[in-house]
Design a protein around this nucleic acid. Structure first.
Lengths: 170, 170
DNA sequence: TGAATCAAGTTGTAGCTTCAACTTTTGCGG
DNA sequence: CCGCAAAAGTTGAAGCTACAACTTGATTCA
């Protein structure tokens, strides 16, 4: 802190652009999903994680980890999703402190309907505007950044790092 | 939309990590700045742009463009910053619809105090965890993404793209 | 076994962002 | 000139997130 060098021109160029992405991109996904399906991107992500879990169920704490959220935030969100019938909360069988969140049939139907439009948006603004090499670079850069944010990003369980041949995909 | 292919494993790996970054990184900067200087990252960014403008002044619309924000959001933020004496609003001289935002002396002093800690945080979590090549890659990736979000990112006026020799920096 | 500690969630509140509506000014075409 | 549309901001309400406090329920270990 005492003598941290300022950013040089090249670093500044990258940083300013990256900040713009950080600022604008979330809004793009939120509007698309809000408009087409009435949920936020975070709502969608929570339900997406649930939909891929055994029995479409997960404990709150694990769900929070998988979605990079605090338990508090998740609790509020799940409550709203429950009121809308998209998710239900089930008291844990063993440990009575535990709450399990489960994607309802209605929530599952909604996800199936929302997914194509969301994937198209992800492609349009990220995946398809990058070369396959850049997609890999983005993964590596994201890994490095996440590693620096100690709270061991327990996200991405599944979707392991892909270390296969580079430059073929798409 | 009708038949958008799903993401393959490699794309998914990149996407999931990137989403985590999008979700977690803003909070890192917000907490650091809130804790050390009592402002949000957006507050800081607004004042940073002002501090680099002629006479530390900019019209609201331009400031909004430079900070990737809506006029509405900026209006609220500037109002709060004004109440805290960090920024002042001055009616435009010519066009009477215009409002100019100006960084006060107090705001300027605050920026000088906050900057080192913020730069250190940016380095710790982004710049310094990446290789010089990755920094350039991040800039290119960000450019591609921003280009896809039509609203011509008028940000980064100044800080032009750096196309000099690669792999030397740091 | 019983007090202290920790874990899992929930809840209330303050603050920030979004969205839509609204006010003032300007600019224009007829 | 007049009326109408567009530009620049502001404002108020609704919704979401962060933070801190709080409630239960499990653990530990003396």
């Amino acid at each position: 802190m005492t003598d941290t060098p300022w950013l040089d021109r090249r670093q500044m160029a990258a940083w300013v652009r990256f900040v713009a992405v950080l600022e604008l991109l979330p809004g793009v996904f939120d509007s698309q999903l809000r408009r087409d399906s009435g949920v936020t991107h975070f709502d969608y992500f929570v339900m997406a994680v649930l939909s891929e879990s055994p029995n479409r169920t997960l404990r709150m704490a694990e769900l929070a980890g998988a979605t990079n959220a605090t338990l508090s935030r998740l609790s509020h969100v799940v409550q709203r999703l429950e009121e809308r019938g998209l998710v239900e909360r089930i008291p844990g069988p063993g440990d009575r402190r535990v709450t399990n969140a489960r994607l309802t049939e209605e929530g599952w139907a909604m996800m199936r309907e929302a997914a194509p439009g969301h994937v198209a948006t992800v492609r349009r603004h990220v995946i398809d505007v990058l070369t396959p090499e850049q997609v890999d670079q983005l993964a590596a850069i994201s890994d490095a950044v996440l590693a620096s944010i100690d709270p061991p990003g327990p996200m991405a369980a599944g979707y392991q790092r892909y270390d296969g041949p580079a430059g073929s995909g798409e």
